[in-house]
Design a binder for these strands. Sequence first.
DNA 1: GTAGGGTTTTTAATATATAAAAAACAACAT
DNA 2: ATGTTGTTTTTTATATATTAAAAACCCTAC
Lengths: 298, 298
Amino acid sequence: MSRKNSLFQKLVNQLLEDIDKKYQVGDILPSDVALAELFGVSRTTVRKAIEYLEEQEVVLKSDSGKVLLSMPKKEHFFDVSKLSKPKEKIVEEYFLGLIQSGALKSGDKFSELELARQSESSTVVVREFLIRFSRFGLIEKNPRSQWQMKKFDENFIDQLHELRYLFEMNSLSHFMSLPDSSDYWGQLNELFIDHKNLMPRMHDDYESFPKLDERFHFLLQEARPNPFISEFYTVISFIYHYHYQWERNKERERNTVAVKEHIDIMACMLMKDYQGATIALAKHLDTAKNMLKNTALL
Amino acid sequence: MSRKNSLFQKLVNQLLEDIDKKYQVGDILPSDVALAELFGVSRTTVRKAIEYLEEQEVVLKSDSGKVLLSMPKKEHFFDVSKLSKPKEKIVEEYFLGLIQSGALKSGDKFSELELARQSESSTVVVREFLIRFSRFGLIEKNPRSQWQMKKFDENFIDQLHELRYLFEMNSLSHFMSLPDSSDYWGQLNELFIDHKNLMPRMHDDYESFPKLDERFHFLLQEARPNPFISEFYTVISFIYHYHYQWERNKERERNTVAVKEHIDIMACMLMKDYQGATIALAKHLDTAKNMLKNTALL
DNA sequence: GTAGGGTTTTTAATATATAAAAAACAACAT
DNA sequence: ATGTTGTTTTTTATATATTAAAAACCCTAC
């Protein structure tokens, strides 16, 4: 099989919707190039779609341009709902599922072919996904042999933590040197208040913490974005999510501690107490590391 | 075409050599498994090789095992010299060549198919290489469109430098906290002496500096290895090498400065002057950054 | 019951084929 | 000269096929 013409089908639908919204019978549609630009596809695809609309007698090409013959009807739309997602996505979901469900554990080997069969795609797609995913350092492979889940041991966690520590401290230092006039201070303050508000409700509402967590660590980075660092964060959060899913029961406890620690850090930051913030952040990261160790290492 | 049987051919040669060295006519060769182990291949491959040796009447299988019939002769060996390297290697060399030669410049687009044709391999191999290479952040690609060389601008260099700074400072700090008894201090001292020796010869022998450079930065890291960080170094050195090739003329000047800076850093380190080392290292990294900017940005 | 060899099944490396989509080219008309 | 459309070529996404190599399975003899 080759690729599916999903782009084409989606475009037709978008086009029909757009027509329905903006034009009336007799109007002239924009040029190919304009449409291609508008929908972010190539002109080739636009032309295919228009051609289809001609067949459906919605559009007629005349000397003056593409004339709208009749308004779109339901039957002109494609049923795009069960168009499969891009294969890459499917494989990704399937594979991450395997990890998350614990079917693939630290040290396990697995085969491309098997994955391809189970995710109903081809070995090429699988392999390309795995190569891409391997940058996260969770899987690896030697020539002529199978892929293998990296051993997730204490050493690995320490190395991960070392980087995280470096990066977050770096972000903190840059944040602290922002001028008072910077908008980020305002955002930090808001976040601080949100934390304060959540705290007393923590016992029942502990599940809304992760959002705050993300906002916090993201805000720190955002002030001085660096794509190398951001990418690393994807790994971090993936790993944490992966490992914490097991121990849902301890989640409330974990989050409660974390909220407090966040508050400590932000309090220092807002008071421009760089040293205090450093200490608080170090403590927070350390707690995180130890919790991860307790959870992930049996 | 499918893959070449180069592993098999290489194994036969290794086997013949091994036989020539260790055995005499009438001896019994080790078991399949032992041989597979010894040469790091699967038993399947060993058996194929032995089978071949039987055809060549070098080995005879009898009840007691694989008996050596006659000593290997020249004609039993395969001419392994022009077995093509793994395709991946070929593509890599070709592609890096394009970059190094300046045929691909910052911002350029290029196609997989074209690369495949020119490097005489298939699109699959090319694409897999590119995906792997893309982790270095020098190329990128959007779905359904071509690969593109990332824009190599001031911003990119700054971000690179930011990480480098973090990592090297981190390494330094760990190095400085090594106990006096650690072997690394000895190595550092040696390296220091080598630098001192090179210095007066710099004018003529400036080309031998890169080795020292590598040793220096590697030594710093080695004391506390972290695969995430090591990988990043591959990028760094690639980028530097790539950009410096143009300006060979200024190389002597650059290296002379760098030698001195290295010496400053190491002198401080050996005197356990952490702060001094920090300052010297910061200066060194800064020089490197600026030189890179001067060279790489027109 | 385990070490060795023989046999069969799977898998990885690599090539090639095909449809969809993009890009390049060409021809006009204004 | 520039913007529009029609046509052709190239490229990507994806599947499948083929062979080398690995892994799994089975048998036999000590």
